[in-house]
Amino acid sequence: MTAGLQIWNASGQLVLDATSRLGRIKGIQQLDGNNGSYPIDLSGGTPFWSFQPDRLYFHISNQTASPIITIDANGVYWTYSSTSGLSYPKTVTGTLIFGVY
């Protein structure tokens, strides 16, 4: 027997079909521009992540270092690319959301 959630609009059209997979958020971490990690058990499914920057434009020179995200069954890890040689470097801060589906 299939389990899940299905939602139809007033016209009878299927607008959401979550009978096969539905993501479960396991954690949220604020990234402050420094390398780091968040150890968490993500072995209960396929891990996923989403990064939401604090703002769209960080510096007019566009010399930014965005986080490089790595995820596996044991946790989430992030590093920032090198800012050496940049005149006005700015690291991109924001919110990292992660979980499994």
Rank of each mutant, 00 (worst) to 15 (best):
R55Q: 15
L14E: 07
G23F: 10
G85P: 00
A73I: 06
A3T: 15
G99V: 03
S66Q: 13
L56Y: 15
N62W: 13
D72G: 07
S66E: 08
I60L: 13
N74A: 06
N62K: 05
Q63D: 07
S84C: 10
P53D: 13
S20V: 11
V15P: 10
Q63I: 00
V15W: 14
A18H: 14
P39V: 07
W8Y: 09
W8M: 09
L14H: 13
Y101M: 03
Q13N: 09
G4D: 05
I60P: 14
G45A: 05
G27Y: 02
A3N: 10
T91H: 04
V76W: 01
R24H: 08
K90P: 00
G75L: 03
Y88W: 13
S61N: 15
K26P: 00
G44I: 03
K26W: 01
T95W: 06
L86S: 06
N9Y: 03
Q63A: 03
W49F: 12
T70G: 10
L56P: 06
L16P: 13
S11C: 14
T2Y: 10
T93H: 07
L5Y: 11
N35G: 08
T70P: 15
P53M: 14
K90G: 00
N35Q: 14
V92R: 00
S50N: 10
Y77M: 06
I40Y: 12
G94T: 05
N9W: 09
G23E: 09
F51T: 04
Y101A: 02
N35E: 05
N74P: 07
T2S: 14
F51D: 10
L5I: 09
F58E: 11
G85K: 06
V76A: 00
G94S: 09
P89R: 00
T95N: 11
G85N: 09
N62G: 14
S50P: 14
S43D: 12
V76P: 04
T70N: 10
L14S: 11
G23A: 15
N74H: 10
Y80I: 00
S20A: 12
D72W: 06
R21N: 07
L5D: 11
A10V: 08
I40W: 15
S37P: 03
I71W: 01
G45S: 02
G23W: 01
I68Q: 07
I68D: 10
P67D: 11
L5Q: 13
L42Q: 02
G45E: 05
G33L: 08
N35P: 11
L56R: 11
I60E: 15
L56W: 15
A10S: 08
